[in-house]
Design a protein around this nucleic acid. Sequence first.
DNA 1: ACCTTACCAGAAAGCGCTTTCTGAAAGCGC
DNA 2: GCGCTTTCAGAAAGCGCTTTCTGGTAAGGT
Lengths: 386, 386
Amino acid sequence: MTARSHGQEVVPKFRGPATTAPLGVELSERETPVHPDTRRRAPAAHVTLDAVAREAGVSLATASRALNGTARVRDDLRGRVRAAADLLGYIPNAHAQALASPEGNRTVGLICHDVGDPYFAGIAGGVMRAAAEQDLLVMLASTFREPAREIAYVSMLRAQRARAILLIGSGFQDRAWERAMDAELEPYVRAGGRVAVVSRHRSMRVDTVQPENRAGAAALAASLVALGHREFAVLSGPPELTTVADRLAGFREGLARAGITLERVVRGAFTREGGHAAARQLLASGGSRPTCVFAVTDVMAVGALAALREAGVRVPEDMSLAGFDDIPVVREVSPPLTTVALPLTEMGEQVIALALRTPSGAGRSRVLRIEGNVVLRGSTGAPPGS
Amino acid sequence: MTARSHGQEVVPKFRGPATTAPLGVELSERETPVHPDTRRRAPAAHVTLDAVAREAGVSLATASRALNGTARVRDDLRGRVRAAADLLGYIPNAHAQALASPEGNRTVGLICHDVGDPYFAGIAGGVMRAAAEQDLLVMLASTFREPAREIAYVSMLRAQRARAILLIGSGFQDRAWERAMDAELEPYVRAGGRVAVVSRHRSMRVDTVQPENRAGAAALAASLVALGHREFAVLSGPPELTTVADRLAGFREGLARAGITLERVVRGAFTREGGHAAARQLLASGGSRPTCVFAVTDVMAVGALAALREAGVRVPEDMSLAGFDDIPVVREVSPPLTTVALPLTEMGEQVIALALRTPSGAGRSRVLRIEGNVVLRGSTGAPPGS
DNA sequence: ACCTTACCAGAAAGCGCTTTCTGAAAGCGC
DNA sequence: GCGCTTTCAGAAAGCGCTTTCTGGTAAGGT
């Protein structure tokens, strides 16, 4: 046997070309030396509580009580059990515990569209931090914006008997999917499951962390008007999402208070590229050019900023640009983007706190309204001709 | 009872002030109407397979086989079982399944420092996508860079009997913690557990996805030299991390090939702020100013770019700046950053694939080397006086 | 000294499922 | 038509743990 051979092979499947150039990948093998003093015991599949009890010379029940502190156990016995447990390297089987105990397990489920999106990453960070403090494990599910996957995940999380299911982000355009989701969630909630959502208007009443999209956008509009702008355009997302609808409506409202009508709304996907494309479309369309553009999310605004730069439009000299959310990247671009700041981390902490407080089905659900703050940065200024 | 009251109260605890300004938060309640046609059955704690079997008039065993397709079941019986299952809204108990079946459960554990960091988010995205394809649930653990938490998570994931444990990112400076980690991991691996890591040099031999930090940094150095630079500085991270050490060594190596000695190395934390502080420190220190700066990660480079701008240093006219990793934000800043691109998503996909292939303890571990590509962007140019 | 009370260890009954094992019924060749 | 294999449903044995329930022993009251 050529066990020592340092075989090398090119990895067979490598999905998709690299972002910028083909990249080499190389696979090599190496032997695993067995650490001498770790060879204490035969590596039985898993050390069970039974083995620990036997080693300590006590009963299964006593071992369980000693390890969990569920009931008084004589000190010497407890000592023996503890010693046996770490001699054997005992790790309890969470599945068995979950099955045997009415307490269930210590996990929560978090469903979002894409962990890669900074908006979700921010909220997820808050959830993770809060979960860590309570010794909860988070099962993360990325739907990649496919409704079917979202529903599948709810049912997987139900199967896992997660303590709570958290949904982050706007629902889907398709009402049919929303209905299917409700059908999936409803029995869960009725059976005592906890559900909480961020920014999602649902037919089912569940605990909600709801950014004040409308008020935030209205306040932003007011600030923009105060800078002297009169001609606006909005880079909008899928109009069926309440987040989009609310921000758009709020912006309109804010303008209306100043007697201004919103001239143009361009629709785009909810991504950087969507914002980029929408901005290009706006520039390509004829008519008088707006002096100020509001993109309904920062992610879109970042794309729009790139598009404006590519088109030679200076921000804010030729055109002002504002977003919504205050994701970290907006401070790094130049000019930094004016936006409506949402406390993403706190929202994450709040949504899990909300979910864990009491069962969702307890007759009433809570709505935690989060106010956004207009943050004026370099991307907005006085309109060109002033 | 004033069940209809729309009680409002300010949420009691709200950790930390908002990022930019105090924000109002408002809590309100609302009643949950019971949807009429969903009231089919009493919401027993959970529908069990036993109930399904009884409803279908078959035995437990048959119900199990019918639902899982583990063995042939007469068509009519299978039909009855399926019908009963979704009439009752049966969801299998994953814990019971995991306990009863040698297959174990369908979850993997992913441990990283911080989901909020774009580098991790990128890799995590790849892991999530691959996991989704295989119907695996990912248990995400953020250590927030606390070694104790990392070890605690390994043991939680062991308890959950995760199919694999994935560790992303460099290990800790403190050798004692590394040893503790190994002690935690070792019995797991010996018991057939699968472990794979990204970018982590460990005493224990586990499957590894290893970016070619050294070669990448050397190639970057060569490109920079080719632009005409002769005086360099490096914004480095904690030197105990192999990632840092390798990139630094590689960069030195690349320079050495051109007969250039690295003038200055400034150490900073592995964050945006670390990069910012390191850049300030570099500017503050006397002596001749380097014409080109390499930050060992893009996150640090982004911070450095901000610091340079604040100090009135033009990039790349006065000073060139380059990073490593190619996280999304480096394309959005201006000028966009030159960097060594790593295929983060693919790395995530590969690490989970590696872990799932065969048990880690099978005598040999594999190392998948990932080559980075130098991507020249606007942040680098010819040195000032040329 | 006798009986009650308190304390605590062990036996055993599940938790909800998978999977052998057993056996009944049906299909086949002779 | 008889024994053979084949097909497939049901009984039952766990998986590893928690948690009653039971019972033995020591302490306290009279």
